[in-house]
Write a protein that binds this DNA or RNA. Structure first.
Lengths: 217, 217
DNA sequence: CAAACAAGTAACCAGTTAGTGCGTTATCGA
DNA sequence: TCGATAACGCACTAACTGGTTACTTGTTTG
């Protein structure tokens, strides 16, 4: 099952490197948590995947839940950072919005772990995110991003006024997130492969269309 | 925590009733699975909540996974049945669509277990749903329902042609499902109580608007 | 009404789980 | 080079987990 997993040859003497070990544990934890959820993830498996001793995991992160919280925080920081880099303020409103819809879709597609992590966190009523101050700070910048696009669009007459940026934000996420998180049950119920190349492209086009129709004047 | 749980007084001699016991187990399982997911659910807890012996659970359902499959099947059958009862064919297309959006939203709101169950099933790559023939049959009727509305709307000139009923179906589900399944993380990130009465009403209005704008000619 | 069967129960088991106690070894500043 | 510190690892455990064994008790029917 994990034949190729122990990539770094298990030399008896690996040079000591706290940061590297931490990073390996974090990477393995992200993988295991996203694959099986917080409840289904196994601490022993994380340690093994990280080619680290379980004792190190507890030394650096304290407990399974604290490790989960760190992994979750990192995941949120990563997506928010990527969003900021989009630099939408220099684009015409319509193009900015289209680009955001496309980005959101492609990010979810490239990082299915993010979706699974968020699902797991909601199953636990966001108890870990509640404690995370850093995520709250990042979130504010994100919400105001869409707000700015919306305002510019209204000013130029392209968008209709009165749209709640939070509702728009949620909708942009929803139409991509739902499709991808429920891709397995969806493929059965709709009797088509939702993950086929053309199906994915069609969905992205549909989503851009949905959002533009929603905001158009 | 479960002070009032053992509602039926634990008389030493309860009259024997296989169907009632089965039903109690199923109800308790739905509760436990939706609260904690398949992995997080505990068989002992289900038995206790059902006020039944764990052996009965294995006698009637075989294993934890088979019990989960039954619970999941029942949940799908319930929502499909409710949808059929909407009787949308006798309504003008626009009203029919609005009613479907409203129904979907309210069903998710009333039955959060359904959402959690579906999430759990997707974490397991739909391995249980794959085996369920009955759900596939029910799904077909459901997809054709939206297709019919769409066709009637195009014929009357109210809707634009060329809309894929599957994409529309997915979108209707998505804008409600995402909001509700991520209500905990969402309330933190957007710094507002997404479950407040006015917030829910606003979201429903927004969703109806989104779908009508999407299909309008 | 007795025997056959189904419903129901308690105690138990083997494997797993998150978490630790304690000893070893590499690294680095003095 | 020495000794302090931090990285690392083995082996353990107490509690838990899904599943079972062996049994009792109620119900039905020839």
């Amino acid at each position: 099952m994990t034949a190729e997993a122990k990539t770094p040859q298990r030399t008896k003497h690996r040079t000591r490197d706290a940061e590297a070990t931490k990073a390996r544990i974090l990477k393995a934890a992200l993988n295991e948590f996203s694959r099986n959820g917080l409840g289904g993830a196994r601490v022993d498996v994380i340690a093994e995947k990280a080619d680290a001793n379980k004792r190190m995991l507890y030394h650096y992160f304290g407990s399974k839940e604290e490790l989960f919280q760190t992994v979750l925080e990192n995941a949120y920081i990563d997506i928010r950072d990527a969003e900021q880099k989009l630099d939408l303020d220099h684009l015409p409103p319509k193009e900015a919005l289209e680009r955001l819809v496309r980005f959101t879709w492609e990010y979810y597609l490239k990082h299915p772990e993010f979706i699974t992590l968020v699902n797991s966190e909601n199953l636990h009523r966001a108890k870990h995110l509640k404690k995370s101050e850093i995520v709250k700070i990042y979130s504010r910048r994100f919400v105001s991003m869409v707000d700015t696009i919306l305002q510019r669009g209204v000013a130029s007459g392209e968008f209709r006024p009165g749209i709640d940026p939070v509702q728009l934000n949620i909708t942009i996420a929803a139409i991509g997130y739902y499709y991808l998180t429920n891709r397995f049950t969806g493929s059965i119920i709709f009797e088509r492969d939702l993950m086929a190349k053309e199906a994915l492209e069609e969905r992205l086009r549909f989503n851009i269309d949905t959002i533009l129709r929603l905001v158009s004047a």
